[in-house]
Amino acid sequence: MSAEIIRVDGLTKHYRGSGDGAPALDGVSFSIEADKIYGLLGRNGAGKTTIMSILTAQGFATAGSVRVFGQNPYENERVLNRICFIRESQKYPDDFNANHAFKAAALFFDNWDQSLAMRLAKDFQLPLKRRIKKLSRGQLSAVGVVIGLASRAELTFFDEPYLGLDAVARQLFYDRLVEDYTEYPRTIVLSSHLIDEVANLLEHVIVIDQGRIIMDDDAESLRGSAVAVAGQAARVEVFTAGRTVIHREGFGALASVTIDGVLSAGERAEAAELGLELAPVSLQQLVVRRTIKGAVDDGSADGAARQGTKQGDTARMEATR
């Protein structure tokens, strides 16, 4: 239905100096269609920024191919001037304030809306005349958010745009994003590890873990695609036998098992008969549980060790909800 505007095939990236360690990206393939909001989700260091850097020709791939608007984006103004990517660690000239940065953006982005930029800057209470290097982390993020939204670029990337922003400012960003997107539909790629906050905004979800894509689906088909079954361990085992188990937790005689798939009314009734509780699984829980499963599937001692650190992160991830 929609036109494909990004095509990535077998993308691999080794960073120089990372030694024989795992690659930052390991044979990643996916495509992105026009005028949808995509979530590029994954933990810190999963490879999200690396992918966006290569797509915008700011970074270089070790292997694999990237087509944006049907062409190679490298040194290609015809592709680049349709893209906006303000990275999370974006650098600005030392002597620039936010006003300077917006003036520059107005030069390069054909669809730039100055009045929108000013309105957003006011919403985020951004000091326009203070030097950017003296801004707080949140204000720095706000500069990037304003440029990203006001550029109205056909393909806009937001790289963890919420860092340092408080809950109110983050909500403001999400609201303005939906508002402006509704009025000016375009392709948005939103990279985030705060999945619950952005889940409802997304039309499509790409989850990356340790340089590999582990999920690539419509957000709607993921919602309700898994269910958590909790209750007496023995009964949970009986009920979930033969199903695809995504995640398993035990608390003594009790167990909670997340299974893949939608339950029929009959199955729900059966669960009720067994005294089992069925709970919906949020996109974030689904991602977290799939990510952990990936580590378990490694099977090696190394995998187990990694899982240990992962669960720490999971706890943190869930604590941020």
Binding site: T56, E75, L80, R87, Q90, K91, Y92, P93, D94, F108
Partner: peptide, 20 residues
């Protein structure tokens, strides 16, 4: 020195090619 170290990364964020 300055026009490269600070302005080059910014120009990349403005979707400017290295050549331009």
């Amino acid at each position: 020195i300055q026009s490269l170290t600070l302005t080059f990364p910014f120009s990349q964020g403005m979707s400017v090619s290295r050549r331009s």
